[in-house]
C-alpha cells in the first residue's frame, strides 16, 4: 500500500508501517518521533485531501 501511495505521488516519508509490541514502549516513542520529524520536514500534505468548501 505504501508503494502504491508513493507511486501516486504521496511522499514515502508520510506513510509508515511498524510492528510494535505492547511491551516495546521505547520503540513506540522512537518510531513516533521519527515519523513526526519526517512529516514536519515535508510540511503540510496537499495531496489526497478532500476540500469540503
Amino acid at each position: 500500500m505504501g508503494n502504491l501511495l508513493e507511486h501516486m505521488g504521496i511522499e514515502k516519508d508520510r506513510v509508515h508501517f511498524s510492528w510494535i509490541s505492547s511491551a516495546e514502549a521505547t520503540k513506540f516513542v522512537d518510531v513516533v518521533k521519527e515519523i513526526s520529524d519526517k512529516v514536519k520536514a515535508l510540511g503540510p500534505n496537499k495531496k489526497f485531501v478532500k476540500d469540503y468548501s
Partner: peptide, 17 residues
Amino acid sequence: DVDAIEALTADGRWKHF
C-alpha cells in the same frame, strides 16, 4: 510504463494520476 511514472518526481507522479 511503470518505470516511466516512477522516474517522475513525487509532484509529477501526483499530477499524472
